[in-house]
């Protein structure tokens, strides 16, 4: 049922990103161990939630003895950006049955989403299900393996390496690969600036605010530039 050629292309497309994902998976495992979670609980979290930034936030809040409601609320606000991904990738994932839609949705990450949408835009004939599944599932497997390795070997890995920096680097790599034209650049600068200035807003609200304003500004820019071209 799966187009293996497309799946392989999806796996191949995200493989270079492992350089940034593996260290982050290790950190997630190390942090779970340092927070006092059992290995089973650490795996329940990395399989059940499967969203790195929110997992680290949960662990931090567990250490701080935060209330359950605060932990849930904080994690969900960090992950609500996934709704934008879901909306953005949905046109490519039709004529797929609901079971597969659920599998693809569950395994979607920032990286597999971004790589896949850029690929689909440039390769409209790609088998979307196969490619997206390949991109997502390979990152899923790598994430789980490295969570366990990090959990078991955490004390061997020096904290000073700043391994968490690998993730913004994967985002930079993916972002610049897919960027197209001035509206895209203006979107990046608008959204980035707002995210920094709004970082003090409670519960990570700055992220969503920045993303939505960025999308709006990019769309308006495209409209204005298109209209100008039409007049000339």
């Amino acid at each position: 049922m799966l187009n293996m050629e497309s799946t392989k292309r999806g796996i191949k497309a995200v493989t270079p990103l492992m350089l940034g994902i593996i260290p982050f998976g290790l950190i997630s495992g190390i942090t779970a161990a340092n927070t006092g979670l059992s290995l089973g609980m650490a795996l329940l979290m990395s399989i059940g939630i499967f969203a790195g930034a929110s997992q680290l936030a949960v662990l931090q809040l567990v250490r701080d003895n935060a209330h359950m409601i605060v932990i849930i609320y904080t994690a969900l606000i960090i992950n609500v950006r996934m709704m934008l991904y879901s909306l953005s990738i949905s046109p490519y994932l039709q004529e797929i049955n609901n079971k597969w839609k659920a599998v693809l949705a569950y395994s979607m990450t920032d990286q597999s989403y971004a790589i896949s949408t850029v690929h689909f835009l440039n390769n409209p004939d790609e088998d979307k299900k196969g490619f997206f599944f390949g991109a997502s599932i390979s990152l899923w497997v790598i994430w789980q393996i490295n969570t366990v390795i990090g959990y078991l070997m955490g004390s061997v890995i020096p904290q000073e390496l700043g391994l968490e920096f690998g993730i913004p680097l994967t985002f930079i790599a993916v972002l610049l690969k897919g960027i197209a034209g001035w509206p895209g650049i203006i979107t990046i600068l608008t959204s980035g600036t707002i995210a920094v200035l709004a970082s003090k807003l409670p519960m990570n609200m700055g992220l969503i605010l920045a993303a939505i304003v960025g999308i709006g500004v990019g769309t308006i820019c495209e409209k204005l530039m298109f209209r100008k071209k039409g007049e000339n």
Binding site: A53, R81, L84, Y85, L87, S88, P91, D110, Y113, A114, T117, V118, L121, F165, I167, P168, F171, I172, V174, L175, G178, I179, A180, P183, G184, T187, I188, L189, T190, S191, G192, T193, I194, A195, V196, S199, K200, G206, L207, I208, A210, A211, I212, G214, I215, G216, G218, T219, E222
Partner: peptide, 29 residues
């Protein structure tokens, strides 16, 4: 218009993740 704006989702969301991760240190710019 929602459809047209979808192509800016990756740029906008990734930037909103990247910039603070790089520029904010211990809550300070």
């Amino acid at each position: 218009w929602v459809h047209q704006s979808l192509r800016y989702v990756p740029a906008a969301v990734l930037s909103a993740l990247i910039f603070p991760a790089i520029i904010i240190n211990d809550g300070q710019i």
